[in-house]
Amino acid sequence: MTTDVHPYLSASTHIDADHPDVRATARRLAAGASSEIDIVRACFEFVRDEIAHSADFRRNPVTCRASSVLRHGTGFCYAKSHLLAALLRANGIPAGLCYQRLATGNRAAPYCLHGLNAVWLAQHGWYRLDPRGNKPGIDARFDPPREALAFRLNDPKERDLPGVLAEPLPLVVEVLERCASIEEVLAGLPDLAGDPP
């Protein structure tokens, strides 16, 4: 691996992999796993299935920090990706953040960012996975080497932002920390017009 993995293993303000509750949950999810793949799958399925997507379930509060997502059991896609990254890092597995720019309407404007993850797998390199939560029409899975993400790009203005980031985009954090309710977030979802970072 030529990538410096240190940033993808480190705890930080929003990916607080060193928080006692995050560490305890990471240990519990890894218990009995026979491989790194098993640990990734357990962490992914926990965040996908056990943490409610705020918009799907209309559940407050708005969360951002991984430990807050875990404590409240809810988060938007961005926040859920922070928790998955924290759980993986707490288990010593390099994990980062990825973003897509997607249409919020029926393949048309307005657009917003969607947050997901990438994990470094020894056999496959960086592999993207999406813990946003499944519902009718969305079937995200952990199925390496095949990607099974929540959303496919369908509109000419939709795109995958390049790279794997160690930290969340500042504009995503700003929205999550400023908004007091899910309705506020939904009214001003983060978007990145023009060229990606």
Rank of each mutant, 00 (worst) to 15 (best):
1 M>F: 14
7 P>S: 04
8 Y>I: 05
15 I>Q: 00
19 H>N: 06
19 H>A: 12
21 D>C: 13
25 T>C: 15
25 T>M: 15
26 A>N: 05
31 A>H: 06
32 G>V: 09
33 A>G: 12
34 S>W: 09
35 S>P: 07
35 S>F: 04
36 E>G: 12
37 I>G: 07
37 I>H: 15
40 V>R: 07
49 D>M: 01
50 E>K: 15
57 F>I: 00
61 P>R: 00
66 A>D: 00
69 V>E: 12
71 R>D: 11
78 Y>F: 14
79 A>R: 07
80 K>N: 05
80 K>F: 11
82 H>A: 02
88 L>R: 12
95 A>K: 05
98 C>W: 09
101 R>A: 04
109 A>W: 08
114 H>E: 10
116 L>G: 12
117 N>I: 10
119 V>Y: 03
119 V>D: 03
120 W>Q: 15
126 W>K: 11
127 Y>S: 09
128 R>K: 15
128 R>W: 15
129 L>W: 13
133 G>N: 02
135 K>L: 06
147 E>F: 03
148 A>V: 10
153 L>H: 08
154 N>M: 10
159 R>T: 07
159 R>K: 06
162 P>A: 09
169 L>C: 03
170 P>K: 02
173 V>S: 00
177 E>I: 01
177 E>Q: 06
180 A>V: 07
180 A>G: 13
186 L>R: 08
191 D>L: 00
191 D>A: 05
196 P>W: 06
197 P>I: 02
